[in-house]
Amino acid sequence: MKIKKLILRLSVMIILFISAGFCSSSIDLRAEEESVTLVSMIVKMDHGDYWKTIKMGAEVAAKEYNVKLDFMAPANENDYKGQIALMEQSIHNGTDAIILSASDYMALAQVTDQASYYGIPVLSMDAEVASAKVKSYIGANNYEAGQKAAERLVELTGTEGEIGIINFVKGARNADQREEGFMDYIARFPDLKIADIEYCGSDERLADTLTRTMIHEFPNIKGIVALNAEASIGAGKAIDELGYGGKTKLITFDNPPEMMEKLQEGTVQAMVVQNPYSNGYLAVSSAVQLAEGNSIPERFDTGTKLIDLDNMLWPDNQKLLFPFIK
């Protein structure tokens, strides 16, 4: 009897000790556990340096904040329906936050509201969308960027003559705002005429063709502004090949490497450079904040810079133009 009792007591003690051990080890387990945030990033197009840079920035932030990033885009920048489908898919997948760079200001409004209805916060990046549910905008001030481009073009061309615009997608908020900013500035000079506005749909070849046509139609055109990277590449190529380099002043947007070369060769006089890397990074880090329920500022202006031959090699601008080491 006594031995039995003793064994019983001993086993109770051993169980107590073991459970004490488990108590302490379970704390460590809890510390290891960290939640993964699902963030969908829906941009306008699945190719192009500009978007690649955004993706890189986003990926760095995703790694930093333990985010599972779902980077999605239609093949074509005109394809707002594709974007809507991607939005719906993200809502269906129950993502924690959506970052949207809307191809169309109006068309994506409804699906944005829908996401908000399902409790998924939506951030707009680069281009806004016509929804009051959007928590924040991360990107450049496009109206100001348009004005900057216009200001430099006027300096180059003088206050009279004809100028042309190669825009990308009509209806995209950033395209419209850049155009508006540009036009508003040009409007100060009554002798400066806008000869033509073309939309290339972020297609380099189409931009090339459109530029050639424009120069054919208006041989005396004094200056052309291209309002995004693809339009710039196309316009630069056309002007170069037609031998109009330096004769028709060209202001471009964004900084694909080939455009840097064109700047040095003198085809491009200046470029308005945004901060796509920052856009991507800030968008993801802000999305994490939103998903965790924190509030964030309504706007992040990541700024634009006008780069020309004189300032392109300033150390600060080198870092902006070439954020990648390799």
């Binding site: 890189m56 920035g57 760095v60 901060n275 890397y277 920052s278 990074y281 800030l282 870092k319 902006l320 954020p323 990648f324 080491i325």
Partner: peptide, 10 residues
């Protein structure tokens, strides 16, 4: 290690 972020001013 975060050279790009520093270059981008982030």
């Amino acid at each position: 290690p975060q050279q790009q972020l520093i270059y981008a001013g982030l």
